[in-house]
Design a protein around this nucleic acid. Structure first.
Length: 518
RNA sequence: CGGGGAGUGGCGCAGCCCGGUAGCGCGUCUGCUUUGGGAGCAGAGGGUCGCAGGUUCGAAUCCUGUCUCCCCGACCA
């Protein structure tokens, strides 16, 4: 019964998540008009709907950053090679994926083209920032002299470039947009507190703003940021069961401070190295939102980050009735905009572009607007609105689930409905994730057989391990790699698991999540 | 960076093997009909066949190079 109803539905996309998750992901981005190819390897054009979501993420994240007392700055795109070369592990981590500027002028090549002018070679090459620890460290070394200057809390919103071998829209692009927080502290305790504050900020943003459940925890040693003493992440589970690292926060110790000379005179008059941190989230979050909330009809945007939360579609008929209908819709838009949802004015678009309302409707469905209102002449005359919730698009009969409601009643409860959608998306994603976390595997053979089974979307495995380091960890990483698995993180505040380590047989001291990942 | 696949109107594709005026579906535009839900009929517009060389009387088609995208791998905050 259910099956026949399901197959009767004509979805807005041509590829389902079940049929081909990677193709589905790309179709969502294309059909929701979020981004497109640019012609430059690994770089994308972010279109208004995709960028609008990013602007929402920026706005909400920026408020959280500022609330923590962190000030925004801007540092240069170009970093002198010599700055970058100072921190050895950092160099090892990034050298292979660097864009380098070597010339400052072009000349005619005599064949109608242009080439870099050999006469205009830069004395010192500039790298295009892959991250800004080094250049911000240089500034910090100038800005910090005394213990009174600490902590120094900065952030910048910027683009960065990493020459990735393999790219995927939003998830891994050669150029991406992000924020990078950089802080300097008097001691380790203060720096660690900041590192964990940022982690908690990211967890709250993901859960509350993106409705994307995450597990916050510490990365294993082999997954640390190049040059970091400790790296923490938030990890989200996508609908195909893979893990997505959705944000990171690093305690950098004194290594970067040493490289850049970030020192302060302490209360005893001694020159002392600062302890620094860095933390970031990027446009990758948008990929996470797609793979967390998207369905076979396109994206579903959580109301908190939806550029438009409600779209009103007048069923224009190009006759004398249109004026009255538009007036009705405009009044509706105005009243809804005066409401407040999720702590902000409700964002309402009256889409009165020419075109059939039904076609425009499917465009908004694919974009994932939380509430779509289609208003016809009869609604206007009867004081009604026809509303469909994007998260409940289909009714049991396989039809679009429009619900006629009294206009004034809808105005009164529209904001609450948006908040309910935000909750519903979070609940749905959390339930799905929890159902796909598997426990009870006690040895490597069990792990192998679990992932060897032809499960389409195996999800994550929660294990206890002995937190091996060095060569022992390398052994574990190799074992996991053979299964295409990685250790995601050790969740914060998790009790000691008890039992023995799946890999070493020693006492298990930590809980970890093991998964395939993006 | 290695292996595989692909690039032809806005989108999806055929044509290529076997060189001879660039086609189809959807969408777009116009008109008529229809009108509470992804409309019908008729007509029209729209393409440097990724790019650059080469072979040829003639290249979407054959050859060489190159760029970009997708999948797998390696790599990867």
């Amino acid at each position: 019964m259910t099956r026949s109803m399901m197959t009767a539905i004509r979805h807005a996309l041509t590829v389902t998540r079940e049929a081909d998750f990677a193709a589905w992901y790309q179709e969502v981005i294309s059909e929701a008009e979020m981004a497109e190819e640019s012609g430059v390897r690994g770089c994308m054009v972010i279109k208004p709907w995709g960028y609008g979501i990013w602007e929402r993420i920026q706005k909400l994240m920026d408020a959280r950053i500022k609330a923590a007392g962190v000030d925004n700055c801007y540092f240069p795109l170009f970093i002198p090679l010599s700055y970058f070369a100072k921190e050895a592990e950092h160099v090892d981590g990034f050298a292979k994926e660097m864009a380098v500027v070597t010339h400052h002028r072009l000349i005619q090549d005599g064949k109608g083209g242009l080439v870099p002018d050999p006469e205009a070679k830069l004395e010192e090459p500039l790298i295009v920032r892959p991250t800004s620890e080094t250049v911000i460290g240089q500034a910090m070394s100038r800005w910090i002299q005394s213990w009174r200057d600490l902590p120094l809390l900065t952030n910048q919103w910027a683009n960065v470039v990493r020459w990735e071998m393999r790219t995927r829209m939003f998830l891994r692009t050669s150029e991406f947009l992000w924020q990078e927080g950089h802080t300097a502290h008097a001691d380790k305790a203060d720096a660690m507190a900041e590192t964990l504050r940022a982690l908690e900020m990211y967890r709250a943003h993901a859960e509350d703003d993106l409705a994307m459940p995450v597990i916050a925890g510490e990365k294993p040693e082999n997954e640390r940021f190049p040059g970091a003493v400790a790296t923490y992440s938030i990890e989200a589970m996508m609908q195909d069961g893979k893990a997505l690292q959705a944000g990171t926060s690093h305690y950098l110790g004194t290594g970067f401070a040493e490289a850049a000379g970030i020192r302060y005179q302490d209360r005893d008059g001694q020159q002392t190295l600062c302890h620094t941190t860095s933390w970031g989230v990027s446009t990758r979050l948008i990929g996470g939102v797609i793979m967390t909330h998207g369905d076979d009809d396109g994206l579903r945007v959580p109301p908190a980050i939806a550029p438009h939360q409600i779209v009103i579609l007048p069923m224009l008929r190009e006759d004398e009735g249109d004026a009255a209908l538009l007036a009705y819709c405009e009044a509706l838009r105005s009243e809804l905009s005066a409401q407040s949802a999720l702590g902000e004015p409700v964002r309402v678009l009256l889409d009165k572009r020419a075109g059939k309302a039904t076609q425009k409707r499917w465009a908004w469905v694919k974009k994932g607007v939380p509430l779509i209102l289609e208003i016809g002449g009869r609604d206007a005359a009867g004081g009604q609105v026809s509303v469909v919730r994007r998260d409940r698009l289909w009714n049991e009969g396989g039809k679009v689930n429009f619900l006629a409601q009294n206009r004034d009643e809808f105005v009164a409860k529209g904001a609450a409905e948006l908040e309910d959608i935000q909750r519903a998306l979070h609940f749905e994603a959390t339930s799905r994730r929890d159902a796909q976390i598997h426990r009870g595997i006690t040895d490597v053979a069990g792990l192998e057989s679990f992932f060897a089974e032809s499960k389409r979307y195996p999800g994550w495995v929660e294990l206890g391990w002995s937190r091996p380091t060095g060569a022992a960890l390398e052994q574990v990483v190799a074992t996991l790699k053979a299964l295409k698995l990685t250790v995601r993180n050790t969740p914060m505040h998790a009790p000691a698991p008890g039992g023995t380590c799946v890999f070493t047989g020693q006492q298990a001291v930590e809980t970890i999540y093991v998964a395939r990942s993006y």
